[in-house]
Design a protein around this nucleic acid. Structure first.
Length: 490
RNA sequence: GGUCUCUUGGCCGAGCGGCUAGGCACUGGUCUGCAAAACCAGCUACUCCGGUUCGAAUCCGGAAGAGACCUCCA
């Protein structure tokens, strides 16, 4: 591809031309889930967003190393039971080993991702597998003078750091504002300042997940794992770091700080952030308890769901909005996505059956160019989809004989749809995958042939009887000029 | 309270100075024994008030409403 790819960089708040550090190669890191619960619709947003990025970068010829972590330790519980992390808390409640909790939800997450046709990352590291690396980072922070020990825990000294670097450059915050706007008093006197964050936390006696360190038996802080894993697998400088907007502050800001503090420079060239999925205009999230899990969507088992929504409907729904816009959940929107997607897939079936003419009356080249332009403009999948729908009209017109296409264009058109629909957008035809039983197919054909005979004899009663009964079983009958077509609706 | 973002037709969602995406729904037409499907056509919106401009949904200022972050969160 000759064209340039533009990516919106949160660091500069502008779209920038993408230039990889090493020509032909891309290092991509994305913050993965904390595995203490089943994945909900919100979790699928970054997964699908960066799956699109991963797929497109590969499509245009890059070799991509995609690292997406599993957070299986280190996040404190919200309601301030000091020193207890989420995984540990959940483990006690369920009377399970912490690693059993981790395994359960990791499996569940991977299962959901597979259903959504999200490609597996190149490396999927876990925080617990990188305790040593995190301890090394803590040591470096201390050695450089940007951290301090307090009662066995180590904190990052934001004020000290801010003297040498600018804290807040990613999220656009100022340290003074942060300090003057702390809402609740901290309760813990260990920190010198409320803006400081823990990079190593001493474990309380009852705390199960713990590791030895030079300072205490404990566990790594919240923001250290990503920088440990990203630099380990992608290097001290790498191309793209992605994640949800809600991680921008403090999580990503703290990553930038730790990079600068330990390496003397930033690690990430392009920061990408996907927006939130909302429900009734509010962020769908664990803390608000207003989430619907992916599995509930797939099965339709939730009071707010009017029906089941297959993984591909969810995926298509997400891709119909740009990743930097909020996306509001509703049954109506999901149902509209479903119908649109069905139309798209139907046209691909039609496309496969088209035959070429000697001339073309359709402009495939410009359609193709529009699709690539959209992707190159910060991965604008809704525009791609809009163009594909323009193509649907073209395909149907070709099928109806209102337009003509030559052999070369037909090959191009097919390639365009296969590339974009299956490869880049990562959609799959679920209807087809369900397996059209051949015998069933023959039987339906037999019945419809009988109906054709009835029609020829103007026996409308018999004709309608066959059609209506097939319809009742869930078949859709489409009459054509000289025959018929049918499909089994779900 | 602080920082930031958003407000588009019946619904969902692009666009980000002129040529007014797309999907769903709806209406009319073509085709058809009728219907469905498909195609063609229609429905033409940018929260409000000022300003800049030959020209603004798009830029600037203000108001109202909503949201995100400031605390674990994708």
């Amino acid at each position: 591809m000759e064209q340039q790819l533009f990516i919106y960089n949160t660091l500069s708040k502008t779209k920038e031309v993408f230039t990889p550090i090493t020509p032909g190669f891309v290092g991509l890191y994305v913050c993965g889930p904390t595995v203490y619960g089943h994945a909900h619709l919100g979790h699928s947003r970054p997964a699908i967003t960066f799956d699109l990025v991963f797929r497109y970068l590969k499509h245009i010829g890059y070799k991509v190393r995609y690292v997406r972590n599993i957070t299986d330790v280190g996040h404190l519980v919200a309601d301030a039971d000091e020193g207890e992390d989420k995984i540990g808390k959940k483990a006690k409640l369920d009377k399970l080993e912490p690693m059993e909790v981790v395994q359960t939800y990791t499996n569940s997450y991977r299962h959901d991702m597979e259903k959504l046709n999200v490609l597996k990352p190149s490396i999927e590291p876990t925080a617990t597998g990188h305790i040593i690396e995190q301890i090394e980072i803590v040591k470096k922070v201390l050695a450089k003078g940007y951290g301090y020990e307090s009662n066995g825990s180590i904190y990052f000294d934001v004020a000290k750091y801010n003297e040498d670097y600018k804290y807040g450059k990613l999220s656009g915050r100022k340290l003074e504002d942060l300090l003057s706007n702390t809402r609740i008093l901290d309760g813990q006197d260990e920190k010198h300042s409320s803006a400081d964050f823990a990079i190593w936390k001493k474990a309380q006696p009852e705390h199960i997940m713990r590791w030895p360190s030079p300072w205490s038996d404990g566990f790594p802080g919240w923001h250290t794992e990503c920088i440990a894993m990203s630099t380990k697998y992608l290097g001290e400088r790498f191309d793209i770091h992605g994640g949800g907007m809600d991680l921008l502050f403090p999580h990503h800001e703290a990553e930038v700080a730790q990079s600068c503090a330990t390496l003397g420079h930033e690690s990430v060239n392009y920061w990408m952030h996907n927006n939130m999925v909302t429900i009734d205009g509010q962020k769908m999230g664990k803390s608000l308890g207003n989430f619907i899990t992916l599995d509930q969507f797939f099965k339709g088992e939730h009071p707010l769901l009017q029906q089941a929504y297959s993984p591909m409907i969810i995926r298509f729904f997400m891709l119909q909005a740009h990743y930097r816009s909020t996306l509001d959940f509703s049954n109506e929107a999901l149902q509209a996505a479903q119908k649109g997607m069905e139309r798209l897939f139907k046209s691909i079936e039609v496309l496969d059956s088209l035959s070429a003419s000697t001339e073309s009356t359709v402009d495939i080249a410009s359609l193709k160019a529009k699709c690539y332009d959209a992707m190159n403009d910060d991965f604008n999948s809704p525009i791609v989809i809009a163009n594909l729908f323009d193509g649907v009209r073209i395909i149907n017109s070709l099928n109806d004989g209102n337009e003509k296409i030559n052999a070369a264009d037909l090959v191009e058109l097919k390639k365009l749809y296969y590339d974009f629909v299956f490869d880049i957008l990562g959609l799959q035809d679920e209807q087809a995958a369900e397996g059209n039983n051949e015998v069933l197919s023959d039987v339906v054909d037999l019945l419809l042939n009988l109906r054709m005979e009835a029609k020829a004899n103007k026996d409308w009663a018999m004709s309608d009887k066959i059609r209506n009964e097939l319809t009742a079983f869930g078949f859709e009958i489409k009459d054509k000029k000289d025959g018929f077509d049918w499909e089994l609706k779900k």
